[in-house]
């Protein structure tokens, strides 16, 4: 009797093999997941190690020393920080209203049949290599009018439009159908329902999308190479005028320079950019968590 019970409970060869496979698969999946964290840590770490020596108040507040890449020490990237902020702000101002309107169309107004092509177009746009976006804007604006802030912002706007649309759409879908019913039943028109009930409910989420889009746009380089690739020691604020210095192009220019002192500046600029983007992404996550909690109360 005891033997039989023992036979049932003792693992046979088949079960032992399955257990080994199970352990192996679990270990590889865990390792892969840790590798992702490690890659990020190593990358951020090496940028931090190389760039930290550059970081100083003057690096953030002064324009580059000298007029061009001549290997002068000192100076900073203030004009590029301002330039990047400006380009990204203008790009967001262009993409945000359109992205929100598209999201409203997709969630509130379209039928499944009309939504499908729009959603597909956005997915394709999202997957479009940004150098292609850059070359498109180059042909459209730069070839005829030269490089300019507005051309660069337009290219960035095309890049972030799907990001804003997607996050906004997801947030609108989180707003419960009950609330739309309640508003309709009060005789509130469809558009008023959207502006006074649905959008306020999704506001936190839309902000998340905007922050994500800002972070994405701030790091985009390919479109800028074709629309606003300038290295200069001046601050340019006129987006309709000439090309505007910006962080990604500074990193690129410094790293191509023959002078080691400028390689160090490339690392420093990279560190500034990466910190800005990390802060942006973390802010977005915090906003999103807050939004989920608020709607989760329902």
């Amino acid at each position: 009797m005891a033997n039989q019970v023992g036979a049932v409970l003792t693992p046979g060869p088949g079960l032992r093999r399955r257990r080994r496979t199970d352990r192996l698969m679990r270990a590889s999946a865990t390792a892969a997941a840790m590798l992702a964290v490690a890659i990020l840590a190593i990358m951020v770490g090496s940028v931090a190690v190389h760039g930290a020596s550059q970081l100083s108040i003057s690096f953030l507040t002064e324009n580059p020393a000298g007029g061009s890449l001549v290997g002068l020490a000192g100076g900073g990237i203030a004009n590029a920080i301002i330039g990047s902020a400006l380009l990204v702000a203008v790009a967001t101002a262009m993409a945000l209203p359109m992205g929100v309107l598209i999201a409203i169309y997709l969630t509130e107004l379209s039928t499944p049949r009309t939504a499908r092509p729009v959603r597909l177009a956005l997915d394709l746009l999202n997957g479009l290599p940004t150098i292609v976006t850059g070359i498109f804007v180059f042909g459209l604006l730069v070839a005829s009018h030269g490089q300019s802030g507005i051309a660069a912002s337009f290219a960035l706007a095309v890049v972030i439009l799907p990001v804003i649309t997607r996050t906004t759409q997801e947030m609108l879908l989180l707003v419960p159908r009950d609330l739309r019913d309640a508003a309709h039943a009060l005789g509130i028109s469809r558009w008023r329902t959207i502006t006074s009930v649905v959008l306020p409910g999704a506001l936190g989420g839309i902000l998340t999308g905007v922050v994500l889009a800002l972070a994405r746009a701030a790091g985009e380089t390919a479109p800028l190479l074709l629309t606003s690739s300038i290295f200069s020691s001046h601050t340019t604020l006129n987006v309709f005028g000439a090309a505007i210095p910006n962080i990604p192009i500074d990193i690129f220019s410094y790293s191509e320079s023959p002078f080691p002192v400028e390689h160090a500046k490339a690392w420093g600029a990279a560190l500034v950019l990466i910190v800005l983007i990390l802060v942006g992404n973390l802010t977005a996550r915090a906003l999103l968590a807050r939004q989920r909690r608020r709607l989760g109360v329902l």
Partner: peptide, 12 residues
């Protein structure tokens, strides 16, 4: 007018 199954005040 209408009142629904689950209370659905506007949360914001």
């Amino acid at each position: 007018g209408m009142v629904f199954q689950r209370p659905n005040p506007f949360p914001a």
